[in-house]
């Protein structure tokens, strides 16, 4: 009676293992977090009426599109990392997981470059509510990317030792990390569309 059940095996009536349920619940709360931020966007934009600038006025759509491609690619490589483990190919897992992390860091660098360009041209969050919500939304999103990089790096590095002793449990961890990562990509799809394209 010491072991916690259903860490790897699924429970019959729910069809889930614990961490899978946990991550979906966490993602539900994240939907509400970004919901709060998007709600602010809607309210502020409607309140500003015609004064609200088009995204392209302040933001470089080409760079934003590039970053979107980067993140979408990382979603695919993250999924491939999990698929590699399902096919018992640890080497491929390491490669795909590594690419995922690299793409994430590229995204962050590009975002950092965008921010620094803004500051260079004296565009600060305090200038108007468009920039305020832009910096806040992308900032919170970037924090989520950083969190994902930390977790993915741990799982790529020291955490990957678990593959030797408990391969199924480790595969589940990658699946769960992957679900988080796809969510971060999903949020960006809306973020990019709303802030850059509207």
């Amino acid at each position: 009676m010491q072991e916690i059940p259903y860490t790897v095996a699924v429970r019959q009536d729910t069809g889930l293992y614990n961490a899978k349920m946990g991550i979906w619940l966490f993602l539900a709360s994240e939907v509400m977090l970004f919901g709060g931020l998007f709600s602010a966007y809607v309210l502020l934009r409607v309140g500003a009426g015609e004064h609200w600038p088009l995204g392209a006025t302040y933001l470089n759509v080409a760079i934003g599109t590039f970053n979107t491609f980067v993140l979408m690619s990382s979603s695919i490589t993250m999924l491939m990392a999990w698929a590699s483990l399902k096919m018992k190919n640890f080497g491929h897992f390491k490669m795909y997981q590594g690419i995922t992390i690299a793409l994430a860091l590229l995204f962050l660098s590009v975002k950092g470059y965008e921010y620094s360009m803004k500051f260079k041209h004296h565009h600060f969050p305090s200038d108007n509510t468009f920039l305020a919500i832009y910096f806040t939304l992308t900032g919170i999103h970037a924090l989520h990317i950083i969190g994902g990089v930390v977790v993915n790096s741990y799982l790529w590095g020291p955490g990957s030792k678990m593959w030797q002793a408990e391969p199924e449990r480790f595969t589940n961890r990658i699946e769960v990390a992957g679900l988080y990562w796809h969510f971060v990509d999903l949020v960006w799809i809306f973020l990019f569309s709303v802030m850059y394209l509207l």
Binding site: G15, L16, M21, W24, L25, A28, V31, M32, G35
Partner: peptide, 24 residues
């Protein structure tokens, strides 16, 4: 995915819609 996960997400979407549109 399992039905249970769908139920969590449906609940979330309902509240998300309220949070997004009621202030408007």
């Amino acid at each position: 995915e399992e039905k249970l996960i769908y139920s969590f997400l449906v609940l979330t979407v309902i509240f998300f819609v309220f949070a997004l549109f009621i202030p408007l």
